[in-house]
Amino acid sequence: MSVFTAARPSATLWIVATPIGNLEDIAPRAVRVLRQAAVIAAEDTRHSARLTRPLGIDTPMLSLHEHNEQARTEQLLARLADGDDVALISDAGTPLISDPGFVLVRAVRRAGFPIQSVPGPCAAIAALSIAGLPSDRFVFEGFLPAKATPRAARLAELAAETRTLVFYESSHRIGKCVADMARVFGAERQITLCRELTKLHEQSVSLSAEAIGEWLLADDNHRRGEFVLVVAGAPVRQETTPSLDVDALLAELLAITGTRPAAKIVARLTGMPRNEAYARALEMASH
């Protein structure tokens, strides 16, 4: 791939978050950036046109998706080198979060052009904020593998993870995904399921993994839309230090050293008062 070097960058790549649901959710700054950019790189230009047209944004669009990102990156680097600002949007939410854009951002950064973020909606963060599960430390897993065997294998790798887990899932796999979680994580593992976030039919329920599976089966509408699953981490295991057999330890030490050094070591390892350890060492040494 060609490398465009920008000694004095005069153009910017803008990473613009766009509404997951209602147009009212778009920030005025995002509208301004999309209007002023020379070109908008969009995952699906037809879908994105439904966002831009009602807002009076007539900026030319260019498709950028997983199948053409490498070639489009070349074109967009050339546009930046010519002094054109470029805006990147995805179908909805924040670009690069389970959406294309990484190849472009990496190349633009290497070429020396500035990159700025216009923050806004992100389904993973929105779901985490309402899940009622610990959010100080979490793991974003995105989409699990589509096929059953690799999906179960990945869940098994995460079964002991103590941080809150965040997944995306599609409507046609949500039932199987939750069933696998109940089997691998345990039926009682707490899950908050968020469906159609910020849209007309938004729902969220917090239940055990087994109960979430039953909820999905109870109504066909429960399995429609786009899903975020926020899963409680595994319980933190309290590691216990095995109790030491003081007499056995003293016997081993007395075989290689004197009573005072042996008592000192035992006191340090077991927390026993040193005078008690010394008295016991003297007693054992005298027999």
Rank of each mutant, 00 (worst) to 15 (best):
L244E: 04
A187E: 15
H65W: 10
L207V: 07
A182M: 05
P134A: 01
A30H: 08
W215H: 15
P60R: 10
V230C: 02
E169Y: 02
R189Q: 03
P100G: 12
V178S: 10
L229K: 12
I125M: 15
I130Q: 04
E24N: 15
E226P: 06
D85H: 15
A38L: 05
A255G: 07
G83P: 13
L269G: 01
A30C: 10
V178E: 11
D58W: 08
L80R: 08
G112M: 15
A267W: 06
E169S: 07
T164E: 11
E226F: 05
V266W: 01
S2L: 10
D82L: 13
R72K: 13
V3H: 12
D247K: 00
F113V: 06
V236L: 04
G21S: 10
T149P: 00
K147D: 12
E202V: 10
E169L: 02
G142T: 09
I20N: 03
Y168H: 09
S117T: 14
H65Y: 14
P273M: 01
A248I: 03
H47Y: 08
A179S: 10
S117K: 08
D247S: 04
L207F: 02
T45P: 01
R151T: 04
S286K: 14
S48Y: 08
R223P: 07
E276Q: 02
F143T: 10
A41V: 11
A146N: 13
D58R: 14
R260H: 08
R50K: 11
L144Q: 13
P134T: 04
W14Q: 09
D220F: 00
D136Y: 12
R46E: 12
R137D: 12
H222E: 09
T5C: 01
S135K: 13
C194V: 15
A179Y: 10
M1Y: 09
P121A: 09
T45R: 08
I20D: 05
L165R: 10
Q203G: 01
R183K: 08
P19Y: 04
F143M: 05
A209G: 14
T18Y: 07
M284Q: 02
E202T: 06
R53S: 09
R280K: 03
F143L: 14
S48T: 14
W14A: 02
A209F: 10
A146K: 12
Q203Y: 09
P60G: 07
T5W: 13
M284Y: 11
L250Q: 01
V103F: 05
D82K: 11
A131Q: 08
V33F: 03
I256F: 03
M272W: 00
A123W: 12
L80E: 09
S63F: 07
V236C: 00
L34K: 04
A152P: 01
E169P: 04
I97P: 06
L64Y: 14
L51R: 00
E66Q: 11
C177T: 15
V178A: 06
I191Y: 01
P9G: 06
L155R: 03
E276S: 02
L51W: 11
H222L: 06
V108P: 07
R223G: 02
R151F: 02
A159F: 04
